[in-house]
Amino acid sequence: MALTRQDIQKLAQLARLAQNPREEEDTLKSLNAVLGLIDELKNADVDNVDPMAYVQLHGQTLRTRAPAAVAGYPPEQLMQNAPQADENHFLVPKVIE
């Protein structure tokens, strides 16, 4: 099923991306082309197959280590890249009127 312009607008809104009408048209064409490629998945026989979200090698489970507290980084160090900050707080446009 091909995507429509309305679908593209909805996806862009969900992904927080703005597009002008020409960009929307380009996106529509290229996403439909990619979906054409991806639709090939329908040909795969996946009955009774378990999904694999992560590679698991020889039964190794990768998330069984107990969490351990470690020293973090000083807030000043982590705040140095903040686009707008004030006294180790991130500043954003006013949210509450």
Binding site: L3, L11, L17, L31
Partner: peptide
């Protein structure tokens, strides 16, 4: 990002994302 947003959106997750994870197993 837009393709991924579509793949994970309601109604398409099973058709695409879950199916792709099964193909990964194969």
């Amino acid at each position: 990002i837009l393709i991924g947003t579509y793949m994970l959106s309601y109604g398409y997750y099973d058709a695409y994302y879950r199916r792709a994870m099964k193909v990964r197993t194969l």
